[in-house]
Design a binder for these strands. Structure first.
Lengths: 238, 238
DNA sequence: CTTGTTCAACCTGTATACAAGTATATTATC
DNA sequence: GATAATATACTTGTATACAGGTTGAACAAG
């Protein structure tokens, strides 16, 4: 296990999930190249487990469209910049839907929860803990999404989450090293979002929202262009 | 295998997928009740296959949130009317996204393809073939969705598709028996949609679109209320 | 040199075996 | 009778075994 992914987060996972998490990280960080053929036997040797958990892992990655299960072997599809843009499209679509619902209801508890998470994000920045920051960032958005208690929107998110988690992790590790000042803006955008929810200010939501996505997307473009940066971002972990 | 699902559609599937398809149909049609605990051993006896394909099936259904994998046994979550409304929410969200893209591009091939599928839908109605009609209906929407070549929207759809397929199958079988005249309106709505794409008429798209979803959703409500109708719909197959 | 055939080394899908965990019923203790 | 300990009959997660199927290289024939 290459440990690209923080180990303690995997505590309760089965072997299949662990392998999937590791492979996912390696595929998205281009440590495993597009076009590579993975076989169950080879992976079971590499990870020192039997074929059963490997099969579980491959099935998971197939659902995320990171690999394609063929007659013989699984072909790595990988992820391009276009994919990343598309994933942001989808996130934007889902969260826009969520906000339309949020504006129609009382959000006292939600706001309280978001403020707590945001404070933790600030601490993570202070201690330059990119991993922790990433997980809190994800949690922030997940909290918003799940607040509307819409099961099927929740399902969409849970299917998308693993890949988004990888992207954010790599992105934030990179920023932490090379664009530390970015975090001011990220925090500001999140504060704006909370404010917008408090005021039920639809235009402000839209603004905060698009701003955040655009900022995040624009700023991180450099990373995905540069193989060396990607490698450093994936090697970096406590 | 209870054969709620047309057998010939399963031609190239593995045992796991077949079992998943059958279980999905049984869960959604309330043949298996919410709260039921499924165990791998019990299912492997019932379907006369080993635990391996059963495990595959359960993993698939878990991703669709139809069951929940617990420490011991898999609990059937099932599907309520609220879920069905939520699934329509999600479909509406996805297809709205798709249409915003479609209006920005040339759609000659798409229109041609849709017209072909629509003609087949008409034939299916003429011969009262609810199954074939359902699959063509799904194909119609899938054709629209995939036409924008947006991989991650495609992934969302492919995750949603199996459940939607079940819902449509049950719904259309019911209508074919009890609301045959509904099909006139369904066809009309699809024609409207094609027309809207041809004219790149955004308001018309919206109208055709909401109309179709509302019609379909409203009209089918009766089915999901009535356990007897559901049973008949699931028993009905050539 | 090209084409067709055979064969060996792989692959996956499924079946089975085993280890470790959990719930339930039963027994022992107070 | 009530409560705690234990036994038992399940369960899942992982490992392994086996049956086809697929690929590609070696080789024979033209």
């Amino acid at each position: 296990m290459k440990a690209f992914y923080p180990e303690q987060r995997l505590a309760a996972s089965s072997m299949g999930e662990r392998v999937a998490t590791d492979l996912r990280m390696r595929i998205i960080s281009h440590d495993i190249e597009k076009g590579t053929i993975l076989s169950e036997n080879q992976l079971s040797k590499e990870y020192q487990v039997s074929r059963s958990p490997i099969r579980d892992a491959l099935k998971l990655l197939e659902k995320e469209d990171l690999i394609e299960l063929k007659k013989m072997g699984a072909e790595v599809i990988g992820i391009t910049e276009k994919d990343i843009a598309e994933i942001y499209d989808v996130r934007l679509m889902i969260e826009s839907f969520v906000f339309r619902r949020i504006l129609k209801k009382d959000n006292e508890k939600l706001i309280h929860e978001l403020q707590k998470i945001l404070e933790m994000m600030k601490i993570a920045i202070k201690y330059k803990d990119a991993n922790e920051f990433s997980f809190k960032d994800i949690e922030f958005h997940e909290t918003i999404i799940t607040s509307i208690q819409h099961r099927h929107i929740g399902i969409l998110w849970s299917n998308l989450k693993p890949v988004v988690e990888c992207l954010i992790l790599l992105d934030m590790r990179h920023r932490m090293q090379h664009n530390y000042e970015d975090f001011d803006r990220i925090i500001y955008n999140h504060e704006l979002l909370i404010q917008a929810i408090i005021e039920k200010n639809e235009p402000l939501v839209e603004e905060a929202f698009y701003k955040n996505f655009n900022d995040v997307q624009k700023q991180s473009e450099g990373l995905w262009h540069n193989p060396e940066s990607l490698k450093r971002a994936s090697d970096f972990h406590e």
